[in-house]
Design a protein around this nucleic acid. Structure first.
Lengths: 191, 191, 191, 191
DNA sequence: TTATAAACGAGACGGTACGTCCTGTCTTTTA
DNA sequence: TAAAAGACAGGACGTACCGTCTCGTTTATAA
């Protein structure tokens, strides 16, 4: 197939510029023009790759947002609890957690965006958590009939809830407390 | 002091138009011009009352978004659990829950908005939940040293978490399950 | 009629900027963005008044291009001949004669532009010439059954023909020669 | 020298496509991209051959625009007059006369274009007319000291003047009248 | 009762950004 | 090495909104 192929460096430059800008800008205030300028790229180079600002941002998150990590060795319950707390802290430190909320809000009235966001951002992270939970089940520290979706909501939902609604950054101790409490609940009963 | 006083009907028309539009539009796509047009009002009438689109939307949420309601009689624990589930369902039915996420995301880089949103939207709702939890403490079904912030995060955080990340509307049974599990956790131990 | 009225100063600024730019730019290279910037005006202020670049330029010509002038006293034939030569020289000196050709070319595939250009630019100038010719007929120096359209073509057509095709600026003597020769032809016979 | 040679068919395709498009498009609206697409050719193939849109169009005119033709036999004056009228009619019928005006307008602020246009379009046509006039001088029907430039302006200038400024297509009779009147003037006196 | 002054709907203002199209150049594969 | 194909940086297009500023009108005090 003839024609000049797209340069991967351009993709990279656009996504990097996007993440960089989002550290100091809200999603609504971010503009494609800023992105293109910061990336040293023409606007059409952006639109050739993504159909909208939302899509660029979704991809930038997929590419650069933190991924939960769980140590496969040692106490599996502890691995999950520590991994989730570290993930939440990494989100806070990344400076882009606010974008996730804006974008999830947008996605609820834009099914294309929702599709992208789930495939590229949400699902990969859920799968990592799922695998960690499975190790706990295999080790017998979680019940075999655990409802995975519920468990994820109960463990992850509370972590950034206080931060997003109150704006005060939670400390590690508080997060550890939250995840331990939730863990006790899901470990105690059949889900 | 002379001069024509502001008409309350204009405030009302603007906020109603805003909520109406938000049922079918994302926050980013909503414009003040649309709001003014739909409200049958000039743009200056909007800017005379609020400094920005965000501020209008924050006020519209404060005015029209569901408020948690708890029956003061009967089993206090059941009152809290039922009240929270009903609140979450009301948010889903209102068609504006997505705006809350977008707006909370915006608020993290806009302290004026954050201030408004907390004062007018978040805090009033937290206080209602707080009072309901206090009734449980008074009745002895929750420990007296309960950490209120943690408890709210653990109870509320999971409820819409699955919906926002997966886009599938949770049913009442699932929500009831979530809130019961979380409740068991906070009731069981000292927080 | 409600609403803030348009400012005449904005019209003026846009047309002046247009003429100014056209002295050193071809019609094809001129951009609405340049015009707006030079006029200290937003692009929408231009598009609120005219539907296209062509329309702005047509109006600018109508407003600022030279108008033929004929002395009503003295020898009427001499008045016409001198007036036409002076008009041609004024067009050359104005630095915008080239635009007339580009625009007439555009008008042939754009009937809206053609309409504007004729109403606002061509016809007013033809009428002035027509009146001067009529004075000659009244004075008996031109035949009463003169074909006006032919006469105008024969007198005006040759004047800038050499300039436009060869690019060399004709001098006054040459133009005087052309108009005198053409005059002899139309005065000699019934048209 | 090695390598693939240029295909003459490409030149041909580009110029044909240009002329074809110009029958229904103004010069300003024409784009190189359209030309390339219509010619089934890449843009670089165009830019390899011509430096700009203007240059392509100038060459297309040189290649496809009508050329004045004069019968060498019979009455030489009649030959010139008929030839000029037929030429003007051919220009009208070709559907590209409007381009000539736009392009001449552009040429006045673009000396490269002016150069090309004169060498390839204007001069060849003037030379043909010049030769026809010379035959008239040789035959004694025009004065030997005829100013050729003036004569061409007087004969050719009026022909399309009415059409371009009024937009109404002149008929053959009217053109014949114009050229005869002008002819009488230049034949009558020393130029 | 009459100023005065503010709010009203409307809409123009200087701007910014949109998403598209085109420019003229550069880079790839194919022939 | 020229071909087509098409990506590249850049710039202009014409539109939608931004938040501000007149307009002419309406409406309620305060003089």
């Amino acid at each position: 197939m003839p024609g000049r192929p797209r340069q991967d460096t351009v993709d990279e430059a656009i996504l990097s510029a996007t993440i960089e800008l989002l550290r100091s800008t809200s999603f609504a205030q971010l503009s494609v023009e800023q992105i293109a300028k910061k990336a040293g790229v023409g606007k059409p180079a952006v639109y050739r790759r993504w159909p909208s600002k939302s899509a660029v941002v979704a991809d930038a998150l997929a590419r650069f947002a933190p991924m939960p990590q769980f140590k496969p060795r040692g106490d599996p319950a502890d691995s999950v609890r520590r991994g989730l707390v570290d993930f939440a802290l990494a989100m806070l430190d990344s400076g882009i957690a606010h974008v996730v909320y804006s974008l999830l809000g947008e996605a609820l009235t834009d099914s294309d965006l929702a599709q992208t966001l789930r495939t590229r951002y949400v699902t990969p992270r859920q799968e990592v958590v799922e695998a960690a939970l499975q190790r706990c089940i295999d080790a017998g520290v979680l019940p075999p009939d655990l409802n995975r979706a519920s468990a994820q909501s109960l463990l992850v939902g509370p972590l950034l809830h206080g931060w997003i609604v109150m704006g005060s950054r939670p400390d590690k101790a508080h997060m550890t407390h939250l995840v331990k409490t939730a863990w006790a609940a899901i470990a105690a009963r059949t889900n």
